[in-house]
Amino acid sequence: MNDLALHLLDIVQNSLAAGATYIVVSVDENPRDNVLIISVSDNGRGMSPEQLKKLSDPFFTSRTTRRVGLGVPLLKQTAEQSGGSLQVISEPGKGTCLTARFQYDHLDRPPLGDVANALVLMISANPAVDFAYSYTYNGKTYTVNTMEIREILGDTPLSDLYVMEMIEEMIKENQNDLKVCQIE
């Protein structure tokens, strides 16, 4: 995986496979405190303590198409090689929350990548699922969620190509603003 946005795209697939209907993705970039945190939480079916224990084992998967499950182990490795850690909290029937921490200025930390684009792809491909996104830069936060966007757009689906472009642009503009305001 070249960047952290790809990891997010991948981890969200786990939430979807767990039958989640509401997924919260958050990114907290904090160069001031030298930390970058990405997290995904969902209201899916959750995992039993046994499954949770095996989660970072690349040879464990609940899939039937193949015998390896590399998504979480790869993210764990990336976090740990960047001076960070991976934490997963899960409760059967309630959902799962995965948090990966990275040392911001670590040489081995992959770039954050295009999170706005990753989100738009998730949103458009899963019309039955609601997503919330929060982006924080040095303590200042921008949040958006598909419920409010759906309310505005009415019948127009979020998978509409023009809608996708607009949502991506909106997220990018706001993320850039948070950064620019603080540099000034």
Binding site: I152, L153, I167, M170
Partner: peptide, 12 residues
């Protein structure tokens, strides 16, 4: 550029 939900509403 679209920056807020209001801008999105106008584009609808």
């Amino acid at each position: 550029k679209i920056k807020s939900l209001d801008d999105l509403r106008q584009k609808k």
